[in-house]
Nucleic acid binder design. Structure first.
Lengths: 184, 184
DNA sequence: AACAAAACGGACTAATAGTCCGGTTACATG
DNA sequence: CATGTAACCGGACTATTAGTCCGTTTTGTT
């Protein structure tokens, strides 16, 4: 037997409440607020998600499900089949879009995962994906390193700064240009 | 008149105490600990540095003074005179060295400046330096963006991960290789 | 219906950044 | 040297918030 009905209901309510609070109040929300807004006791939040970090990771994973499926079995160039260089560009474009649409979540996630964000399952998956493709496209580079460098750009502050005002496409464009230099 | 004698003495004691605690306890130190170890009241810490962030920024600035002077008026290629590409490499090498020798401080600094680390005076100076050189070496790139990307690699966790065990030179080497690709 | 396992809520604890103010000290001045 | 005052000092106090605990309630099975 999986999760009890009330448990599933509350898990959903908590994720929803977190989303709404992030949208209305930005990244600085407390778990008391989340619990109150979800009409749930604080203990329930921790029982379901373990910690603030767990909650944010769960929310990020939820938002990244579609991208994950697209990478694993979707159409090229995001999915398998295209040359590595094209897949890298497609992946980073998709990530740029995801990031731009989830700035508050991204910031909250960073705040929570401050300590070893490299352990976050979503980060790990993204990094592994990039690393593999980079190793294929440019076996002479330090793929692990370069993958970290590229993912490092998806810092919430960075994206916000380079995105806001006047030029929403700058971030994705500059990132693509940078990748172009690396793979040239 | 500048700072009163006792004020100066305490400022120094606090910086010293912070250094020592970072060295012995890692990045997770509280300001109560700092005050106690400096044999000073907590209020004094805040009066002198304004906040935890202020303290960490002051400490980082102190450690970065030599590098700063070298950049502004030292011998080439770190100082003025060499071609931009060489200066970039020299600067990043110096930064790698500084980072490797101050991992705990770097981590504590990141933790404190979580919100808008782009406002930190040391970060701003380093970014401006890089940005200028990149714009000279490769006017076709988005210098602001690339400068952020390069500085983003000096994340404490990242440096630690790529530095520890077996290959202390990997970080600097991989970074140099990456820069080589960008400026080629 | 009865029972056990799972879940619930919210009061409680712990850690810690930052504030406040009554008492103290350095130093400029005469 | 004596003195007035502005700057400084300590550490108790407040506020915030992540995470724990346990008596009570719900769920789902037999």
């Amino acid at each position: 037997m999986g999760e009890r009905a009330d448990a599933a209901r509350n898990r959903h309510a908590i994720l929803r409440a977190t989303e709404e609070l992030l949208a209305t109040h930005g990244a600085h929300i407390s778990l008391d607020q989340v619990a109150a807004h979800a009409q749930v006791g604080k203990g329930t939040v921790f029982r379901r998600f373990g910690s603030r970090t767990g909650l944010m990771q769960a929310l990020l994973q939820e938002r990244a499900v579609q991208l994950r499926e697209a990478l694993e079995s979707g159409p090229a160039p995001l999915g398998p089949g295209a040359p590595p260089a094209e897949r890298i560009v497609a992946f980073l474009d998709a990530l740029s879009q995801l990031a731009a649409g989830n700035l508050a979540l991204l910031a909250a996630h960073e705040r929570s995962c401050a300590t070893d964000r490299h352990a976050d399952p979503t980060y790990v998956r993204w990094h592994a994906h990039l690393e593999t493709l980079i190793a294929q496209a440019r076996p002479d580079l330090d793929a692990t390193f370069v993958a970290h460098a590229l993912l490092g750009m998806f810092d919430a502050d960075m994206v916000r700064r380079l995105t806001r005002e006047g030029d929403p496409g700058r971030f994705a464009r500059s990132l693509r240009q940078l990748v172009g230099e690396l793979l040239a």
